[in-house]
């Protein structure tokens, strides 16, 4: 028999370092940002110690900011959708592969995570540029060169590339849990491959797909490097906007306001989505 812990405060002591870490690196800066967003700002004298709501009012009434928010939402949603459309079949194929190949392809999918996002994004800007490989190929086939770099298309392409592993891995995990004989059972009962996929495999995978979507959406909506490098100066997303307010305009309170609004919006969308996912999970999987 092991005796009961002699120090009643042991749990607190054990959780202490983690809690301190969390407090110091997440809660404290967040609180400071919230406070900052309510402070007045003057172009000649800088940050004032007076309380104001003006930044919030500016952001929600100015069409310039609203357009950027709307673009962020659109790009994140589109990226999530494309990641699901590519990632789910990819994960299925991966789960049905035999061993040497499965390990190889898993590495191919996860490999990009080992390279810095900045490096990968520069790679895309070289490929998509006006004299890049893609345009050269287009011209070679006889099409007019297209302007891809510094458009939303370029951002979505690069984001999909960056985010795909975050979709493939949860779906793959869900598939690993499914007894392969369950799909076989559907075949023996007369279902074609496609019907078995639709009726038996997909419902099992949905949960993995939904949690993958959550990760992809959250990361895309707050992505910085990709829109900064592929969107150019004019095509801003939420994160690049915050960056510009802080470092170009030096209007820290306004930057903080935008950051808080993005955080709250992201939180709302993800919580609502998670609610839906969990309700579904409880119904089908328990």
């Amino acid at each position: 028999m092991t005796s009961r812990s002699p120090i009643p405060s042991a749990p607190w002591l054990l959780a202490g370092p983690g809690a301190l870490f969390f407090f110091g690196l997440v809660l404290l800066p967040l609180a400071l940002t919230v406070i900052l967003s309510f402070q007045a700002y003057d172009h000649s004298t800088g940050i004032q110690n007076t309380f104001t709501l003006s930044h919030y009012i500016t952001v929600v009434t100015d069409g310039y900011y609203l357009e950027i928010f709307w673009r962020t939402l659109r790009i994140a949603a589109l990226t999530t959708l494309i990641c699901a459309a590519i990632g789910v079949p990819e994960a299925y194929i991966l789960s049905r592969m035999r061993d040497p190949w499965r390990s190889v392809f898993l590495l191919v999918i996860i490999g990009p995570l080992l390279v810095s996002v900045v490096v990968r994004t520069f790679g895309w800007s070289m490929l998509l540029g006006s004299q890049g490989l893609v345009n050269q190929a287009l011209q070679f086939v006889g099409f007019a060169p297209a302007r891809i770099l510094y458009t939303e298309t370029a951002i979505v392409i690069a984001l999909v590339h960056v985010m795909l592993p975050f979709m493939v891995i949860p779906v793959w995990t869900a598939l690993q849990k499914l007894d392969p004989m369950v799909e076989a059972a559907a075949w023996t009962l007369g279902a074609s491959h496609l019907t078995a996929l639709r009726r038996v495999v997909m419902p099992q995978v949905t949960l993995g797909m939904l949690s993958g979507s959550l990760i992809v959406f959250g990361l895309s909506a707050s992505a910085f490097a990709v829109p900064a490098l592929l969107g150019g100066r004019r095509l801003k997303m939420a994160a690049t906007l915050v960056y510009d307010e802080y470092l170009q305009e030096l209007n820290w309170p306004l930057g903080a306001t935008i950051a808080i609004i993005v955080l709250v919006a992201n939180l709302c969308i993800m919580l609502a989505y998670n609610r839906m996912v969990e309700a579904r999970a409880r119904r089908t999987l328990g």
């Binding site: 007894d179 004989m181 419902p203 099992q204 089908t284 999987l285």
Partner: peptide
């Protein structure tokens, strides 16, 4: 009838 039953869990 499969040894592992292979019922459709959902």
């Amino acid at each position: 009838v499969f040894q592992s039953y292979a019922l459709f869990p959902h």
